[in-house]
Amino acid sequence: TEYKLVVVGAGGVGKSALTIQLIQNHFVDEYDPTIEDSYRKQVVIDGETCLLDILDTAGQEEYSAMRDQYMRTGEGFLCVFAINNTKSFEDIHQYREQIKRVKDSDDVPMVLVGNKCDLAARTVESRQAQDLARSYGIPYIETSAKTRQGVEDAFYTLVREIRQH
């Protein structure tokens, strides 16, 4: 089974770092803004072998026109913010609204991801993020692309959301 996953969120929150940590098991430290990259990885989730087709997208506003296209083809979405960047957390709402509009559905598989949880300088409390996820009816997972904490959990949870859909 193949799953088309799309990673969305503001610029600099760590979308590529999360994806590369999942696929290649290493942490990319330097920031190089993405336009669009796709990665494929075969994994076993709950005993089922599946192929993850992951689209890593641009957070930069100037590429926002490309969003409709990949939102149409994606089956599930990782909505990523950084726990030390309140603005990126506030941006999640717009991504969710755009996904709902493009998919013409209120019920699209999504996982809210709070990345950079290895950093002490948190400005978005776990509780705020949990409340937001609960209001959307989606899971919330904290990750660190640096330490790998929660990385597999985030992507695998999204696959489970798609399966249950």
Rank of each mutant, 00 (worst) to 15 (best):
R96P: 10
S135L: 06
E48P: 06
D32G: 06
K15M: 03
E161G: 07
P139I: 07
F77E: 00
Q69I: 07
F27D: 02
P109T: 08
L52D: 04
T19Q: 12
D68H: 09
I23K: 11
Q149M: 02
E142K: 10
K116C: 15
F155C: 06
G137A: 06
F77D: 01
E142C: 05
Y70V: 10
C50N: 14
Y95G: 05
G114D: 01
L22Y: 11
T57R: 02
V44L: 12
Q69R: 04
Y95H: 06
V151Y: 13
E125M: 11
Q98F: 13
L51D: 14
R101E: 02
E142P: 06
L55Q: 08
A65T: 03
G12D: 15
L51C: 07
D56G: 00
R101V: 05
L22T: 13
Q69P: 03
T49I: 08
D131Q: 09
M71Q: 09
L18K: 04
Q42M: 08
T147D: 14
I99K: 04
V44Y: 07
E75K: 04
D131C: 09
P33T: 06
C79E: 00
M66E: 08
L55V: 08
L158Q: 06
S135Q: 12
D131H: 12
I141E: 08
Q98S: 15
R72A: 07
L119K: 11
A121M: 14
K41D: 11
Q21G: 13
R40V: 13
F81S: 05
R40I: 13
D107R: 14
G9E: 05
R72H: 06
T143W: 01
R122A: 14
G114T: 03
C50T: 14
K103D: 03
V151R: 01
F77A: 00
G11E: 08
S88V: 07
Q164L: 04
A17M: 07
G114W: 00
V151T: 09
R160V: 08
S144Y: 05
L5A: 05
K146V: 14
I35H: 06
D104I: 06
K103R: 12
V102E: 15
P109N: 05
V8W: 11
P33E: 09
P139H: 12
A121I: 15
Y136C: 11
D68I: 00
G47T: 10
I20S: 06
I20G: 04
A58P: 06
Y140C: 06
E36H: 05
H93G: 11
T123F: 00
S126P: 12
E2W: 04
E30V: 10
L132V: 09
I54E: 00
S126F: 14
Q24K: 06
Q130G: 09
R122S: 10
E152T: 12
K146N: 15
N85W: 06
R160D: 04
Q42N: 11
T73K: 10
Y63P: 12
Q130A: 05
D118A: 02
M110T: 00
E30G: 07
N25A: 14
Q94E: 08
D153V: 09
E152W: 09
I23D: 03
T86A: 14
K4N: 15
I138G: 02
R101D: 02
Q24V: 15
Y95E: 04
D153A: 07
A133K: 09
Y3V: 11
A65L: 03
I138A: 09
M71Y: 07
H165D: 14
V44H: 13
I45L: 12
Y3R: 10
T34H: 02
A120D: 11
Q21S: 14
L18F: 15
Q24H: 03
V102L: 06
G11N: 14
T73I: 07
D37F: 02
V111Q: 00
D53M: 04
V80Q: 01
E36A: 02
Y39G: 01
G47E: 09
S144M: 10
Q128C: 11
R160W: 09
Q24E: 03
T57K: 00
G9F: 01
I20L: 08
D32S: 06
I141A: 06
A120T: 07
T123C: 09
E48D: 06
L18N: 01
G9S: 02
V43N: 14
R67V: 15
D46P: 03
S144R: 06
L52F: 10
R148H: 15
L51P: 08
L158I: 15
D118S: 02
L78I: 14
C50E: 07
D104S: 15
T86M: 15
D106H: 10
Q60K: 15
Q60C: 12
I99F: 04
T143A: 09
Q128F: 10
N25M: 11
S126C: 11
T1K: 10
Y70C: 11
Q69S: 11
T49H: 11
I23N: 14
R134T: 13
G76Y: 07
T73R: 08
Y95K: 10
G12Y: 05
Y63M: 10
T86E: 11
K116H: 15
D153C: 10
D104A: 12
D153M: 09
K116T: 10
H93Y: 04
S16T: 12
V44N: 11
V151I: 14
V13L: 09
L119Y: 11
Q94M: 09
Y3D: 00
I92V: 11
F155A: 02
D107E: 10
A154M: 11
R72W: 01
I162D: 02
T143F: 02
D107I: 15
I20R: 04
T143P: 02
G9P: 02
L51E: 15
D53I: 00
Q98L: 14
